[in-house]
Structure formats: structure tokens, C-alpha cells
């Protein structure tokens, strides 16, 4: 389904975010991408749909090459890749329905999207998807009136109405509390298996990753250092991914910097919980 060959990204600042990444995701597989902050997880995902332009290497989706496409072709290609974001990235001041329908933007001409007159089958599809993610009663609410979990469901619905072949999911649970995180991960897993969708999930939380994903890829300093089934994720492997000296502490450090920490601060009371879950997932 998705094939990545020798993907390299060097930012203008000189930082080498990805270095010769080779990866293949077969149809229907949900793959987890783990690694310390700054390992290049987000960059990798954004290089696939070229929100970040790769410096070298090639990306194929279903046999077609994504890298090297012209603007119009790239837009058509992006329709086939649904993206879900860590801070949801909903357009806060638009209604839930508009946010979901924005997933159809690549399919409709400008005047239709401007007048909000989407084709009937698109609207039906949006309603059906909203029902699937459990938000059928919130259609006309503004996105900023929803809770975190509900917002992420809108984000998922927006990606799904694109009729994608693959989902690119960037830290879907980083801004959520542990319970909602599990619900969202479960929903993603269910939907992918219902539709036979492939997915790449960037995830900070090793425990969650093991719980819901079949295959895990570990990224460190922009290179793939681990690729195997979730069960193979043993302490020595984590050492390899997260740091040589003392991986037990690196997991706690991991929580203190980066996205997980931001989420924890948001949900003050639950701060301790993800750690417990994560440690539970490790043993």
C-alpha cells in the first residue's frame, strides 16, 4: 500500500530530521511509530503527504509515486491520505458539520465549498460518519464547544469522509486523558479493520501502542532502529529506541518533555495515570 524509500529530510536550519528511512505498510495494517521527542516521527508523517517537503527519497501510495507530483496531482493524492492531528486541528469557529465536510474539499469545486452546498451524497456520508463516531447529535455545534475526546472524533470523521486509503495519525491521544485516549485508539482500530484501512500512528505512549497496534516501528535520530510485532517490544528494545544509558529513566524523562507532558499539564489530575499505564504496558 504505502512504500517509503530512502526518505531524508534536512531542515533549512541544518537539522537532519530523517535519514534514509525505508518502510513498507501493507494494506489494512495499523502501524505504530514510536520514538523520543525529536526523533522525526511528525516529520516522517508529514513527508508522506508532503506537508513537509522531503529532501530526498521517494514515497509511493498504491503504486503511484507521491514525491514529484505537481500541485494539482498532489491535491488529488492528498485526498487518499486522511490525517488526524494531536491538537485536533479543527477549525474552531466552524460547525462540526463544516469541519467534517472540509474532508470533501479535495473533491468539490470552489463555489460549492464556498456556498457550503456540498453534493447530497457527501452530506449523507458526513452524517453517516458522524453517527459512526457517535456525534450525530452535535452536527450544528461549533467545534470549540466540544470536549477533547469529541473534537478528536470530529477529526477522525473529517479524515474518514475523504475515503482515504491510508490514515496518517499524529499523536492522536497526546491531548487527551487516559480513558478517552483508550476510547479513541480503540475507535481508530475498529474503523481501520472495518474499512480495511492502513494507518501510521505516531504515538508517545508505549503502553497504548502495545495495547492497540500490531506492528511497531521505532525511530531514533531519524533512523528506523526497530521494526517488529508489538510483543517484541522488550526493555532492551526500548533501550535501543529511547537511549542507551538508562531506559527506565528515559521513559520518565519522556514524560517531562514534549507532547505527553503538555497533555498531562492540561489534565492535571490524571498526570500520574499515563505513567502507570505505560509502565504496566512495559512489563
Amino acid at each position: 500500500m504505502l512504500r517509503i524509500e530512502g526518505l531524508t529530510k534536512r531542515y533549512r536550519t541544518g537539522d537532519l530530521a530523517l535519514e534514509g528511512v525505508d518502510l513498507e505498510v501493507p494494506a489494512g495494517q495499523v502501524m505504530g511509530l514510536i520514538g523520543p521527542s525529536g526523533a522525526g516521527k511528525s516529520t516522517l508523517i508529514r513527508c508522506i503527504n508532503r506537508l513537509v517537503e522531503p529532501s530526498a527519497g521517494r514515497v509511493f501510495l498504491g503504486g503511484a509515486e507521491v514525491t514529484g507530483l505537481g500541485r494539482a496531482q498532489l491535491r488529488a493524492m492528498r485526498r487518499r491520505m486522511g490525517m488526524i492531528f494531536q491538537e485536533f486541528a479543527l477549525v474552531e469557529r466552524l460547525t462540526v458539520m463544516e469541519n467534517v465536510l472540509s474532508g470533501r474539499l479535495g473533491y468539490v469545486p470552489f463555489w460549492r465549498s464556498l456556498s457550503r452546498r456540498f453534493p447530497p451524497e457527501d452530506v449523507t456520508k458526513a452524517y453517516r460518519t458522524l453517527d459512526r463516531v457517535g456525534l450525530i447529535d452535535h452536527v450544528d455545534k461549533r467545534a470549540d464547544a466540544l470536549s477533547g475526546g469529541q473534537r478528536q472524533r470530529v477529526g477522525i470523521a473529517r479524515a474518514l469522509v475523504q475515503d482515504p486509503d491510508i490514515l496518517l495519525i499524529d499523536e492522536p491521544t497526546a491531548s487527551l486523558d487516559p480513558k478517552t485516549s483508550r476510547q479513541i485508539m480503540r475507535l481508530i482500530g475498529e474503523i481501520c479493520s472495518e474499512r480495511g484501512l492502513a494507518a501510521i500512528v505516531n504515538i508517545h505512549d508505549v503502553g497504548l501502542a502495545q495495547m492497540f497496534l500490531q506492528r511497531i516501528v521505532g525511530l531514533r535520530h531519524g533512523k528506523v532502529v526497530f521494526d517488529g510485532p508489538a510483543e517484541a517490544l522488550k526493555p532492551d528494545v526500548l533501550t535501543q529506541i529511547y537511549g542507551e544509558e538508562d531506559w527506565t529513566r528515559s521513559i520518565r524523562d519522556d514524560e517531562e518533555d514534549g507532547d505527553a507532558a503538555r497533555a498531562d499539564r492540561k489534565h492535571g489530575d490524571h498526570a500520574a495515570e499515563p505513567e502507570r499505564e505505560r509502565l504496566a504496558g512495559l512489563t
Binding site: R78, V91, G106
Partner: peptide
């Protein structure tokens, strides 16, 4: 981030502006 999300759906620049 909102701009990025709408761009990722395959929207044209005019649509990104609008949405």
C-alpha cells in the same frame, strides 16, 4: 495547525483560505 489540517485534505489554496 488548522491551515495544515485543511491543506492535508487536498483542498485548493482558495478553499484553504475559505475554510
Amino acid at each position: 495547525a488548522q491551515v495544515e489540517a485543511v491543506t492535508a485534505t487536498g483542498a485548493s489554496p482558495a478553499q484553504v483560505m475559505d475554510y
